[in-house]
């Protein structure tokens, strides 16, 4: 194998990535920055966070690695957002970059713990105050899927 062959492989991969990027982009639901799409039993409901009754969320979360996350934003508890929906066992929150996190019904219904706030650029962000790591800190929330 020569360098030229590698360059051809690289070119093929770039083309393949471009095609896949179009496929992935087309597969994503379209929404405005501050909106979240809630999927329950096959139906999608879009909420614009800005139009909801948001409150000030101020908290300081210290993670296991010693880093402190200061939160000072407008937001709403996730359990309040999901109030009108049928019973669910868990929720899958997926970001625009396909990163996702799962929460159980019990976790969501803890008082003052799980919030969806307006993050950078007015994009919805999932924050779990009791989590010791940032594993379920989902920025740019795209969909919230209710799973039975």
């Amino acid at each position: 194998m020569k360098k030229k062959t590698l360059l051809i492989i690289l070119a093929v991969l770039v083309v393949l990535a471009a095609v896949l990027a179009v496929v992935v982009s087309n597969g994503q639901p379209k929404k405005r920055a501050s909106e979240v799409i809630i999927t329950a039993e096959g139906t999608n409901v879009t909420y614009d966070l800005k139009t909801l009754d948001l409150t000030d969320v101020k908290a300081s979360v210290t993670r296991a690695n010693g880093k402190t996350l200061k939160i000072d934003a407008k937001g709403m508890e996730l359990k309040d957002i999901l109030k009108g929906f049928a019973k669910y066992d868990k929720v899958k929150v997926t970001a625009g970059d396909s990163y996702s996190a799962e929460l159980t019904y019990e976790e969501i219904n803890k008082d003052a713990d799980v919030y969806v706030i307006l993050g950078d650029g007015g994009k919805p962000r999932l924050i779990i105050l009791s989590d010791t790591d940032a594993r379920r800190d989902v920025k740019d929330v795209l969909t919230i899927e209710l799973i039975r």
Binding site: L13, A17, L20, V23, S98, R135
Partner: peptide
């Protein structure tokens, strides 16, 4: 370990990793 991606998103993820790996 973390992402659990499937389908075209996983393919794109691996493809991107391979391209940046070659570069």
């Amino acid at each position: 370990i973390v992402f659990g991606l499937v389908g075209p998103v996983l393919a794109l993820y691996c493809c991107t990793a391979c391209i940046s790996g070659i570069v």
